[in-house]
């Protein structure tokens, strides 16, 4: 049995655009809710890593990336610990090495979302 689950953003669309569904078709919100969330749940249930292939698309606006990955942290689809997230998802770009920049954006948005989430948590007295 494979110890890895795969999800390819290119199968969702080759041209992702927008943050919310109201921005138009193929938005970050749509991908997160319909594709990413079930895939993460399935991978976690099986106890395997989810490989997210990001390079079969034209490119990404920051809004799409933030909505997918920052949104996953806010919606608690992903935990609020970066090391734990690294044990759940793996970002790959086998055919376009220059997509490393998008991988960096993804991790930056995940870190920001964790930071913002923690700053809003009630402080213990």
């Amino acid at each position: 049995m494979s110890n890895i689950e795969k999800i390819d953003i290119g199968e969702f669309t080759h041209a992702p655009f927008g943050r919310y569904r109201k921005d138009g078709p193929k938005s970050g919100e749509e991908f997160r809710e319909i594709w990413l969330e079930p895939a993460i749940k399935k991978a976690r249930k099986k106890g395997v890593i989810l490989e997210i292939i990001i390079d079969d698309v034209e490119g990404y606006g920051d809004s799409f990336i933030e909505s997918v990955f920052g949104g996953a942290v806010r919606d608690e689809i992903l935990p609020h610990d970066i090391e734990e997230i690294k044990r759940i998802i793996k970002i790959t770009y086998p055919n376009k090495p220059y997509f490393e920049m998008y991988k960096n954006f993804i991790w930056r948005h995940i870190l920001n979302a964790i930071k913002n989430f923690k700053s809003k948590e009630p402080k213990a007295i």
Binding site: F17, R19, D23, E58, G59, Y60, G61, D62, S63, K96
Partner: peptide, 20 residues
């Protein structure tokens, strides 16, 4: 060039979204 293709997509999609 491939890097320009993806950066073009990134820049124009954010410009359009900013207007929206």
């Amino acid at each position: 060039p491939v890097l320009s293709q993806t950066n073009f997509f990134r820049a124009v999609s954010e410009s359009i979204l900013n207007v929206q």
